[in-house]
Computed example of a mutant assay.
Amino acid sequence: MEEIEASQYRIPKGVQGKAGCVGTVVEGECIATGEPVAIKEVDLQSKRYQKVFQNELYAMEKLAGSDKLVDIHSAFVRGDHGYIVMEKLDNDLLHFVLDKGRLEEPQAKEIFYKVLQAVKYMHDNSFSHRDIKPENILIEMNDKECTVKLCDFGTAKEFTKKEFVTGVCGTVLYCAPEVKMRIPYDPRKADVYSLGVLLHVMLTGLFPFEAQYTEKPKPDDVPDAVIVYDMLSKEAASLIELMLRPSPKARISLQEILKHSWLKKHHKAAKVKLRDHIPHSLSTLRQKLNKQ
């Protein structure tokens, strides 16, 4: 296997990694410590991908420090490819759910609560994620605890409290109706809708509209959500129903989700731990790319 060295990391070349919408993630290694890392590679020849890469650097620079988001070690450009070096966790939520078929409510509750804390941290810092889905949630289990972290901030959006945003982004099966309608929308409420689809998938192994079509839908063809009630407790179904309301005004807020009975009686409010380390390379590289 041919390897190239860039910065402080060894990146395997010619190895098939986990493909995302914009880049490919492979397992690399910190040369100094031998620690395994996840390295996202993005082809910067595409103007669209370059914009997403720069946006991810900007978002992570602004949001760096939370233990609820994946830790970014470094970022650099080599040739016509950009690289983001991240901590490596054992699994993502998609494969975790696929392996089990669906999650029992106590386990789903623990994981979902931690996802909510990550999204809340972003919203509290004036960012929406806009692509919440199981593939973008990393998970690692051991005997003592379950570590859950949100990742992939290429479509994250900075906003003001009263600002509505525009632009279709994210993954169609998790997109809120107002996003697909291409009208100005509250990005926080759009994230809530995606969280509703996520929770339904975690608890049932199905999308909340899966029974209505047999082929992958086009963006404008995804129907309104239909919840699989017979696989859910009344409290879980109630929460999902509130999150998947088509009207953003009628849709529950993130703060209200955290107070919902399905979650409230099992969890006390947890403080987000902050890290002191903010990768200097993110700011430096982003400024360099902006000058090109």
Rank of each mutant, 00 (worst) to 15 (best):
M1E: 11
E3A: 07
I4R: 15
Q8C: 04
Y9R: 13
R10M: 13
I11N: 01
I11A: 02
P12M: 10
Q16M: 08
V26M: 08
E27Q: 15
E27S: 12
C30G: 02
C30I: 14
I31R: 15
G34A: 09
E35Y: 04
P36D: 13
P36Q: 14
I39S: 02
D43C: 07
K47R: 10
R48K: 13
Y49R: 14
F53P: 03
Q54V: 09
A59N: 05
M60N: 10
E61K: 06
L63A: 01
S66W: 09
I72H: 02
H73P: 01
H73C: 03
S74A: 08
S74R: 07
V77I: 12
G82S: 06
I84R: 06
I84E: 03
V85D: 06
E87R: 14
D90K: 15
D92R: 10
L93K: 08
H95M: 15
H95S: 15
V97W: 01
D99H: 09
G101K: 00
R102Q: 09
E105V: 01
P106G: 08
K109L: 14
K109Y: 08
K114P: 12
V115T: 06
K120Y: 12
S126C: 10
F127H: 13
H129R: 12
R130D: 01
E135K: 13
I137C: 07
I139H: 10
I139N: 09
I139G: 06
M141N: 04
N142S: 03
N142W: 00
E145L: 07
E145Y: 00
T147R: 13
V148C: 05
C151N: 07
C151S: 13
D152C: 06
D152K: 03
T155H: 12
T155K: 09
F159P: 01
F159L: 07
T160G: 08
K161C: 04
T166C: 08
G167A: 11
V168L: 15
G170I: 05
T171R: 01
V172K: 05
L173N: 12
Y174N: 07
I183A: 08
P184F: 07
Y185M: 03
D186L: 01
P187T: 06
A190D: 06
A190H: 10
D191S: 07
D191V: 05
S194Q: 11
V197Q: 08
V197R: 04
L199M: 15
H200P: 02
V201D: 09
V201H: 06
M202C: 12
L203V: 05
P208K: 14
Y213K: 04
T214M: 11
T214H: 14
T214A: 13
K216C: 00
K216V: 01
P219V: 05
D220H: 08
D221G: 00
D221R: 02
D221N: 02
V222F: 04
P223S: 11
A225P: 06
I227L: 15
V228E: 15
D230L: 04
A236Q: 07
S238P: 00
S238N: 11
I240D: 00
L244C: 08
L244V: 13
P246V: 09
P248A: 03
R251C: 05
Q255N: 07
H260P: 00
L263W: 01
K265A: 01
H266S: 04
A269Q: 12
A269R: 10
K273Y: 09
K273V: 13
R275P: 00
D276P: 02
I278P: 02
P279W: 04
R286P: 00
L289H: 06
N290C: 12
N290T: 10
Q292C: 05
Q292L: 10
